[in-house]
Amino acid sequence: MTETLIEAEEKVADPLLPTFAFIKRVIWETDDTFTLFVDSPAINGRLFSFRPGQFNMVYAFGSGESAISISSDPSRPSVIAHTIHKVGTVTTSLSSLRRGDMIGIRGPFGAGWPIDRAVGKDVCIVTGGIGIAPLRPAIYSLIKRRAEFGRIIILYGARSPLDLLYRVELEAWSKVPNVEVIVTVDRGDSSWKGHIGVVTNLFSYVKVESQDTIAMVCGPEIMMKFTVEELQRRGFENDQIFLSLERNMKCGIGLCGHCQLGPKFICKDGPVFQLSDVSHLLEKKEV
């Protein structure tokens, strides 16, 4: 052959083929959001392992695939969890599955949260809605290595008290030394004793210093935009702020072109980005 770019390749499984895994447990977190726990499959003969913030392409028989963040503890990779918001065809198909059913998995894909960069620093986690799912593995990891970090501040907003995910975990995390958890809802009722208001309001109740702090933010893009403004107002530089972005994904491995944001492929360059690498792209509409 000519001097092409193709080299003799070692034989690996086709990354476009899913591996099938048994569902062990289904937990309905809210009336439209559920978590599927599966026995993690061996991929390419290796045990499945992942970094906090990575995602899988989860396949429902005949309906298709959806990019779903892994929401379980990375130090326990034998069972992996996907917390899924039932919104479209694929996620609706997934929502009908029960223990013993199978789903297809491709992954883990993408870049995760900068846990190691946060060593020796405070961590400020700001999240909204289903955005807490990709952050849960990061929180598990931070707490597991508690002594290596300073304060851990978790600010979480949901639409209503009934939409709050991981209530048990939130409660448990709040009891860990030097971990502050503050929760708010956009819409409350008289039975809700907690905060009502958007997640950015929570900055009023907690001391967040920009110095030696890493911020990890995940939620709807508008919520992240307001959060970033709030962090910047508190002196955060863009290289201290990390966001997890969402785009349409078909392949998860940078080949289908769907998830582009300017020169970035969200699936392989992200989904977690340092804000300084993407802020100029997020400022423009419809990039």
Binding site: F61, G62, G64, K250, L255, C256, G257, H258
Partner: peptide
């Protein structure tokens, strides 16, 4: 141009499913 999408189908009785990749356009 290299963008693609996928199409998932099943047979009429739902006993097997097929996934095809197709050219897509931005």
């Amino acid at each position: 141009c290299f963008c693609s999408t996928v199409e998932d189908t099943t047979d009429l009785i739902g006993s097997f499913a097929t996934r095809r990749r197709k050219w897509d356009s931005c």
